[in-house]
Every structure is written in structure tokens, then in C-alpha cells.
Design a protein around this nucleic acid. Structure first.
Length: 449
RNA sequence: CGGAGUAUAGCGCAGUCUGGUAGCGUACCAUGUUCGGAACGUGGGGGUCGCAGGUUCAAAUCCUGCUACUCCGACCA
């Protein structure tokens, strides 16, 4: 993409409404625009990151055996009356009336609807297990939305819903999602720590939150440093096999949020030098809630012995629109964002330092074509501004590698490559630059590990 | 929903106390000099001062009401 043809409205000055660093940087890097309290437009750069995150989530959900579909944002109130949540959910649920005076709601979650789909079509235990997911916009009318898209009213979520014949089978599904989550966050460059969690209003008795450590995290968390060293399950993990060893390994070190922590237990189980008391951002949650909805909504299947039983269910969420700021909280410095390659809006930015110089522009145009041919996701800064502005902008939006060509280099045949994360610069013959970038970027995509 | 603030050019702000019809920085347009970390000069365009009502010869400024947004708290993926 040529920057002269793109839409990237970056801001030099600090927007006054933003308090935390990720919100400020998302506004300054031209990723989002606030439209009302808790409602945001995703501008091209921000949307590109969101799509990359979505692709990783989809790949890992599919790998773990979940099946993608899509449910509507608006739901009929009847389903929620059936489960009893129409009245109990409270004012966070946005209620809408259509022209026929029918009660609708903007879905804050989809347990009722997926259960309705399930009971409409599934009759036999032979069709289990089933794990369906969708990635859809949800709405919760938060009393006080804040921190940009970290806590917005409208938000994009991946929700998977599983159906199993009994608790044992449901726990296996739970473990598959657990492993998929470890891989998902790892591929985004994050270390997300699974912590025993309260089950909250969704109900049930088995739940983990996945937490990313960050100073601006909304909750205090306590864990054993050991958990940060645990190995990530490989790409070829057999999701049909027994995953309990992996889950056990990850759930043995102490890790709990402030809601669940027992300080005495924490201090007793974790030696002082390994204790981490920090703040964290929740980026996903797993729930097993048994037959809570299947029983009240008649989602039964017939077993081998001819008897009907209510299925055992779980739900598994990942907040995409919250992951973006969580990533920025984890990856930034004083100059701007520092994206990991796998979620970066572009992998490399080609900077033409002097767009008016014939040789310089010719060299850059050629490199731009080569980078595209090499399969790299490239933004080409072909604007006519000064060098300082271009460097500042490239640093701000956080593209992992900068390929810098100035008139001097164009003449002498030298290219400069800056690593955004380390700040290191390397000079090399121009003809080597594309292969050099390809070699360092491809493994960083983490799509083959 | 309780408490505290803010609203003036695209963005960041001053002007409001003490009423006289709007200014600074930046961004934008033109032009010239620059050209490796947001460079400089000259010229230019852009604001019914959040909305409504009131007081006054005169309101960004004083009074009343409303709206939006932000922060703290309770709540939450």
C-alpha cells in the first residue's frame, strides 16, 4: 500500500480524552475514532490489526475442532424470557422495539440463541460433541465505558459454545479450548496466564480467565513466576488425544485474580522470589456451566439407552476489540507502538526519504514491487514530507521493520533497515534487503509453530 | 447512578472573574529556501465561541434550563 493512496490520519498531539497509553496511541496512530461514549469506528490501520487477530483466532479455533458460523446481533426477547435472563440481566442489556412492537435486544452474549439452534437440529448423542463459534459484535450498555476499546459498549467477540453428552466429555472440550487459547495468545506474541476465575452471571463451576500482565490492567493478579516459562503446545498437537497433561502443567503453578486469591495460600505455595503480584488485563475466559441453559431450554439428546438427557455446555470467549489495546499495553515505548510481526498492520514500511529525487524514488518503487512479490505486507511511504516526520510516524504506528532509502544510499547502492523493537539499524547492499527482511519476518509470523 | 470537571478553527489551548463582536500553537492551501528524526520564511483560507432561552444599547464573557464528553466511585468481557 502506498501511503499517498492510504488513509492514515495520525495525530501529532496528545488527544485530551485519552487516559491510558493504549487509548492514546490508538487515537494518535489513526486506528480508531470515537463516535460516542463507548462506540468506535475502526479506521483502516486499526481494522487491519483487528483482522489479523481475527485470522489467528479462527485458525486456532478451527484447529481445535470448533466450527465457525454467524448469529445476528439482534435477538428476540422470547429466547431470553425462556432462560429467565430477560429480567435478570439488567440495564446493561440494550432493549429495542421494532415496528410491530416486538421486543428485541442487542445481544450481549449468545447462549440462548445457540441453545435454540442446537435444540432445533440435534436429537442424538451420536451428533456430539459439537462446538460452534462465531465472531460477532456485541453490546453491553456499560454504566461507564472507558479506556477506549478496552472497555467499550459495542465490542467484537469470539464466542464458542460446546455441547457434550456428560461432564467428562465436556471437560475434554474445555481442555481443547484451553490449549487453543494458549496457542492463540502465543501466536500474537503475548504471554497470557490462565487463572482460576469466578464464573459470574453466566454460571457454572469451572472457569479460567486468560490474563495479560500490564501496568494498566484493571485487576490485581497473583501468580508463580514459573508459569511464564511453561512450553506452548505445538502446532501438531493432537486435539483428539488426551490434553490433560498440558492443562495440568499450566494450572499447577499458583495463579489467581484478586477475586479468587487466598493470600495465605499464595504465600505458602509460592516461594518469595517467585511471587508475582501485578496487574492484568483479561483477554479471554473459559466457562463450563453444565446443563444451566440446556435444562431450562430443553436442549436434550437421546442417549444409547433411549433416555433423554440435557446436554453439558460451556462457552469460551475472546474479546478481539480488547485484545488490540491489550497488545499495545504490552508492546509500546516512548515513541509509539511496537507491534509483534504476527499482528502488525504492516510487516515492513518502506521509507522514501526524498520523494522528489529521481534515483531515490526509482529505487524505492522497484523495492516496493519486490517486497510485494516476496509476499511481505508492506506500507510504502512515498509522501513528500521531510525525513523527521516520516521517522516519527513510522515509529508511532509501530511497523516492525523500516526499510529506509535516502538519496545518498540510492546513489551508493545501500539500504538501511531499522528494527523498531530494538532500534538497531543495519546497512546493506540494496539488492540484499528484500531477502534479508523475508528471512527475519517469516519466522516471526508464528503461523508455522 | 453518586461525586468532580470540560465544551472557543481539524487537533491542543488562551480569552470568561472585570460585557464592546475572537486569538495563539499546530494542521491545512499557495510559494520560496530546505531535505537522515515532526526544518524555516512569506502570503492565505477556516470559528452562528456545545444547544435553547433570558438580561443588556451590546454576550464567548452575566443569569436559567438542557445536551454531549472526560475523570473518580459502584459495575463489568
Amino acid at each position: 500500500m502506498r501511503l499517498t493512496n492510504y488513509f492514515l490520519p495520525t495525530l501529532k498531539e496528545e488527544p485530551k480524552e485519552a487516559e491510558i497509553v493504549s487509548h492514546r496511541l490508538m487515537l494518535r496512530a489513526g486506528m480508531i475514532k470515537q463516535q460516542a461514549a463507548g462506540l468506535y469506528s475502526w479506521l483502516p490501520l486499526g481494522y487491519k490489526v483487528l483482522r489479523k487477530i481475527q485470522t489467528i483466532i479462527e485458525q486456532e479455533q478451527n484447529r481445535a475442532g470448533a466450527i465457525q458460523m454467524l448469529m445476528p446481533t439482534l435477538q428476540p426477547a422470547e429466547l431470553w424470557r425462556e432462560s429467565g435472563r430477560y429480567d435478570s440481566f439488567g440495564k446493561e442489556m440494550l432493549r429495542i422495539t421494532d415496528r410491530h412492537d416486538r421486543d428485541l435486544l442487542f445481544g450481549p452474549t449468545n447462549e440462548e440463541m445457540i441453545t435454540d439452534i442446537f435444540r432445533s437440529y440435534v436429537r442424538s448423542y451420536k451428533e456430539l460433541p459439537l462446538n460452534l463459534y462465531h465472531i460477532q459484535w456485541k453490546f453491553r450498555d456499560e454504566i461507564r465505558p472507558r479506556f477506549g476499546t478496552m472497555r467499550s459498549r459495542e465490542f467484537l467477540m469470539k464466542d464458542a459454545y460446546s455441547f457434550d453428552i456428560d461432564r467428562e466429555a465436556a471437560e475434554k472440550t474445555y481442555q481443547r479450548m484451553f490449549v487453543a487459547y494458549l496457542r492463540t495468545y502465543f501466536r500474537m506474541g503475548l504471554t497470557a496466564i490462565p487463572m482460576r476465575a469466578e464464573t459470574g452471571p453466566i454460571g457454572g463451576d469451572l472457569s479460567h480467565e486468560f490474563i495479560v500482565l500490564a501496568e494498566t490492567g484493571e485487576s490485581a493478579v497473583f501468580c508463580d513466576r514459573d508459569i511464564l516459562q511453561k512450553p506452548i503446545p505445538a502446532r501438531d498437537t493432537d486435539f483428539n488425544g488426551d490434553l490433560s497433561a498440558i492443562v495440568d502443567e499450566w494450572t499447577t503453578p499458583y495463579a489467581a485474580t484478586e477475586d479468587m486469591v487466598d493470600m495465605e495460600e499464595f504465600e505458602q505455595k509460592v516461594p518469595e522470589e517467585r511471587r508475582i503480584a501485578a496487574r492484568g488485563i483479561e483477554v479471554g475466559q473459559l466457562f463450563y456451566f453444565g446443563s444451566k441453559y440446556s435444562a431450562s431450554m430443553n436442549a436434550n439428546v437421546t442417549e444409547a439407552d433411549g433416555k433423554d438427557v440435557a446436554v453439558h455446555s460451556g462457552s469460551y470467549g475472546i474479546g478481539l476489540t480488547r485484545l488490540v489495546p491489550a497488545l499495545i499495553e504490552a508492546f509500546h515505548d516512548e515513541n509509539g507502538i511496537v507491534w509483534p510481526v504476527s499482528v502488525a498492520p504492516f510487516e515492513v514500511i518502506l521509507i522514501n526519504l526524498k520523494a522528489g529525487d529521481e534515483l531515490c524514488s526509482k529505487t524505492c518503487d522497484s523495492l516496493y514491487g519486490q517486497l510485494q512479490t516476496a509476499g511481505l505486507d508492506v506500507l510504502y511511504d512515498d509522501t513528500s514530507g521531510g525525513a523527521g516526520g516520516k521517522f516519527a510516524n513510522a515509529d508511532l504506528v509501530g511497523i516492525p521493520f523500516q526499510l529506509i532509502i535516502g538519496p545518498r544510499g540510492a546513489k551508493s547502492g545501500e539500504a538501511e533497515i531499522k528494527n523498531r523493537k530494538t532500534g538497531e539499524r543495519e546497512t546493506m547492499p540494496i539488492e540484499n534487503a528484500v531477502q534479508y527482511l523475508k528471512d527475519i519476518i517469516e519466522p516471526e509470523r508464528r503461523d508455522t509453530v
